[in-house]
Amino acid sequence: MSRSPSGRRPSDPLKAAEAAFNKATTKPIEGPPKAAAIPGVKETVTLRIDQDVLEFFQEDGPGWQDRINAALRKAAGKD
């Protein structure tokens, strides 16, 4: 809050309250829009899952990451 030259609070408390409210409720400026996902492009992530779940997907050998991805797509309704 800015103070008057005398060091006292502004003479109009309503204006001061409105300014504080506007500062607190103004939507921040957003950065550039997020790029749309490109179909078929995969992203490397770190994911913590229970050991027994990991073992379930790894039981059938190579391709376990694709099987996890397929299960997640189905759960997300993206299949």
Rank of each mutant, 00 (worst) to 15 (best):
S11A: 13
A19K: 06
R8M: 08
T25E: 09
E18Q: 14
R48W: 03
G7P: 00
F57M: 05
E18N: 13
G77N: 02
A19G: 02
L14E: 14
R8P: 00
K27R: 15
L54C: 07
S2A: 12
I68C: 05
M1V: 14
G40F: 01
I68D: 01
E59D: 10
S11K: 11
P10Y: 03
A75N: 04
R73L: 11
D60Y: 05
K42C: 07
R3D: 09
Q51E: 07
N69G: 06
P32F: 06
T46N: 12
S6T: 12
E43Y: 04
K74C: 04
A35H: 12
V41I: 09
K15Q: 14
Q65G: 04
D12I: 05
T26S: 14
I49V: 14
F57I: 02
N22Q: 15
A36Q: 15
S6I: 05
E59G: 08
P33M: 01
R3V: 10
G40R: 01
R48H: 06
R8E: 13
P5S: 11
F21S: 04
P62M: 08
L72Y: 00
G77H: 02
A71E: 10
K15N: 11
P33F: 01
L47T: 03
K74L: 14
T25K: 14
A70Q: 13
R8K: 11
R48L: 05
G31A: 10
D79V: 12
R9V: 04
E43D: 07
D52C: 01
F21P: 00
T26K: 15
A75W: 05
G40E: 02
D12Q: 05
P28E: 12
K23F: 10
T46K: 08
A35D: 13
S4K: 10
F56Y: 11
